[in-house]
Design a protein around this nucleic acid. Structure first.
Lengths: 108, 108
DNA sequence: TTCATATATAAGCATATCCTTATATAGCTT
DNA sequence: AAGCTATATAAGGATATGCTTATATATGAA
């Protein structure tokens, strides 16, 4: 069962606009750090630190592929996760923009 | 629709153990500030400030009855609220304790 | 009106958060 | 091994958060 510490940590991780934005992107598809940097236009360390919080809160999982680390959504320990994800704004157009700029290709 | 500001504010309000505790109590039943103070054993201003955050985040509603203000759960603007509430720990025993001590009577 | 009780607000302090820049680590490629 | 790229960590500063004590406001009662 989830205790107060875990619940608070989860919601704390969700309680930041930048991280909600990142999670909304990951809802569309798995992304690596450099792609998220490109979309959000903040520094790479800032993104790394957000990813660490999301990982600690068990809201994302990571998968290394060469020098890239791909992050994807995973809130399977939270019964409410799916219903929260459904409320994320639609950011498919931002991923489309990324692809148009050809930047996704770098990581594949 | 909910935007990122509202979503972040909601989760920020949920991202604190004390507030999760308060919401868990309100899940059992409507309570006034002095009762919450009694259960949590923190100062009255601390509870007041938490209630303000919860109210601003639209997670509770308030109802004045004489000199008491009763708070109750209300996350109706959040589609995921019910599923989050279900994960709150059960604190019915704490309310029972309060009643045994006779402190609930003061407000009724 | 005066007093008592319930709640809210103000001010101040300790700690947490989020960003930045600088540096370290890890994996490719040559 | 040397150099390049992707990511992580460290350090520091500005702002936010959560608590406390002190004070203000609001309601009910005498």
């Amino acid at each position: 069962m989830l205790d107060w510490d875990q619940l608070a940590e989860c919601h704390k991780a969700l309680g930041d606009k930048t991280r909600l934005h990142i999670l909304s992107l990951l809802k569309v598809e798995e992304l690596c750090v450099c792609e998220i940097v490109e979309v959000l236009q903040i520094t790479q360390p800032a993104v790394s630190q957000h990813m660490r919080k999301l990982k600690t809160a068990k809201l994302v999982r990571e998968r290394r592929n060469g020098q890239w680390i791909f992050y994807s959504l995973d809130g399977s320990i939270y019964p409410f996760f799916e219903s929260i994800v459904q409320t994320f704004p639609d950011v498919r157009n931002e991923i489309e923009e990324l692809k148009k700029k050809g930047l996704r290709v770098l990581c594949n």
